[in-house]
Structures are given as C-alpha cells and as structure tokens.
C-alpha cells in the first residue's frame, strides 16, 4: 500500500501535466475539428466531416497537401544522403587532416544552429531576381536568370534546396557519431575477408552498422520536412498563388490569420495522423532490416 502511494507520488505530477497539457488539448482539437468554431465565438456548430472534405476537396487544400508531399519527397532522401556522404568524407578526412575536418564540420553545422528566419533573409537576398548573387553567377556562366521565389513552377524546389541545406549538418553530426561507434576491427576483418574497394567495405560494414542511425535520421528528417513552415512564412507566405503553400503554413493561416479554429483543427488532426502513420510504417519496414547491437 505504502509502495503504491510512493509510486503514485513519483508518477503523479508528470502524469497530470501530460494529461492537462498534451492529452486534453489533443482531445479538444479533435472535437473542434468537427465544428465550425471561430476564435472568440461564444458557440460552435457541429458540422461533421465538412472541414475534412474542404481540406481534401478544395483546390487550395489539396495544393497544400501535395506541396508538402513533394517537398518531403525531395528533402528526406537528399538530406539523409548528403548527410551520410559528408559524414563519411569528414570522418575519413579527420584521420589525415583533423583540423580541416573539424572546421568543415562546424561550417556544415552552422545552418542548424542559426535561426532559420534570419537565414531566410540572407537567402532572400541571394535569390533576388535582379540583385541576387545567384542570378549574377548564373548569367556569368551564360545561364538564364531565374525568379527563384516568384516563379510558380520553381518556388517549391527552391525551398526544398534550402531545406536540404539547412538539415544536412544535423544529419551529418548524427552520422558522424554513428561512424565513430563502428569498431575499426570490422573494417580490418572485411579487408582480410577480401573486400578490396571502399565500396565493398561500405556495403559490408558501414551501411549495416549505421542501420539504427539511418533509421533515426530518416524519422527525424521526415518529421522536420513535413513540418516545413519557417522558410515559407519568412520568404514566400505560401505564394505565389499558393504554389508554395504547405500544410503547417495553411494551418497557421487558417487558424491565426483567418481565426477559423475548427478548420485549422481539422488540418492539425490530418497532419498528426499522417505523421503517426509515416513513423509507424518506417518503423515496421526499417526495423526488420536494421540490426541493433
């Protein structure tokens, strides 16, 4: 009895906080998603799945969904791939030129540590159609200058490149830690067993041993990619003509600009379920292939 009381006292405060600040808001959001509630309104009407059909049925809603998917489809593989590539490069470089490797590591990590909104301003300057450095260089090499942020067909890809640039450093750090944990005798063993090329050693040792790291990096990158918001808010505002509208930006716009709390809640619920599903699928697929020590 006494022991139960101690248990309760230890678990209690955290449990209450979780219920009050996480479970209850989630429940409220789920309820609101089926209403037409507006911020400040004294009452709300139960409208069933109208909010959801607006999201999936309207052009704007579908645009936000597809934009987010395209963005994630570019950012996740590129960011994970480049992160791994850079990590392997720096890991090998640190054996011969440790100083330079450490400096480069800092350089790659800077975008992660810096505030995205501040960085967005410098990107905006770089990408300016007439004054920007990037278009200057493009025309120097005889290429057609582009309207990076105001071209409807281009803006999402520009944001994706920035997203990759920003997250590579974080993934690199995770991969570096994973690489450092691989025992060097495994590489010796692979060499003795007849693995001659670096490529063969990568597939026999590095890639499988990085399995758990890769899985973690994928999930984290996916979660951040689907939550894309800062660059959209700071650089394009979802424009031009919703060409760079994303789920979280739409959620912000509907909820905090138009005060449509019910509709915003519906977007939140969809977003939440999508992320949950994605993580579950990744865990199921990857977990079977991943070896944990």
């Amino acid at each position: 009895m006494r022991k139960h009381l101690t248990d309760l006292m230890l678990v209690g405060p955290a449990a209450i906080l979780i219920v009050v600040f996480i479970f209850m808001p989630v429940a409220i959001v789920i309820v609101l998603a089926f209403t037409d509630y507006q911020f400040g309104a004294s009452s709300a009407n139960w409208i069933g799945i109208d909010n959801f059909s607006t999201l999936f049925g309207s052009k704007i809603g579908r645009k936000a969904l597809s934009n987010t998917l395209i963005y994630a489809a570019i950012v996740i593989p590129c960011s994970v791939g480049f992160g791994l590539l850079v990590a392997i490069g720096l890991h090998n470089l640190s054996k011969t030129l440790p100083r330079i490797s450490a400096i480069l590591r800092t350089v790659y990590f800077l975008p992660v540590a810096a505030t995205m909104v501040a960085l967005a301003v410098s990107w905006q300057m770089l990408l300016h159609p007439s004054l920007g450095l990037i278009n200057n260089w493009m025309s120097m090499f005889g290429l057609q200058p582009q309207r990076w942020l105001s071209d409807r067909d281009l803006v999402l890809y520009t944001l994706a490149v920035i997203g990759v640039w920003q997250s590579v450093g974080y993934n690199m750090v995770l991969f570096l830690a994973g690489l450092a944990a691989i025992p060097s005798t495994l590489y010796d063993a692979a060499e003795v067993d007849g693995a001659q090329s670096g490529w063969a050693k990568f597939w026999i040792v590095t890639w499988p041993m990085l399995g758990p790291t890769t899985m973690f990096v994928m999930i984290v990158t996916a979660a951040t990619a689907f939550r894309i918001f800062e660059t959209v808010a700071a650089m394009t505002g979802g424009g031009p003509a919703y060409a760079s509208d994303t789920i979280v930006y739409a959620l912000y716009r509907e909820g905090f600009v138009y005060f449509k709390a019910g509709y915003a809640s519906a977007i939140t619920v969809v977003f939440f379920l999508a992320l949950l599903l994605l993580t579950a699928i990744q865990m199921l697929i990857v977990e079977r292939k991943v070896h944990y020590r």
Binding site: A189, V205, P208, M209, H291, R293
Partner: peptide
C-alpha cells in the same frame, strides 16, 4: 575481438 559482423 573476433570481429564478427553483428548483422549477419
């Protein structure tokens, strides 16, 4: 350390 491949 035997250096066996732990994933195989």
């Amino acid at each position: 350390s035997y250096a066996l491949y732990p994933h195989l």
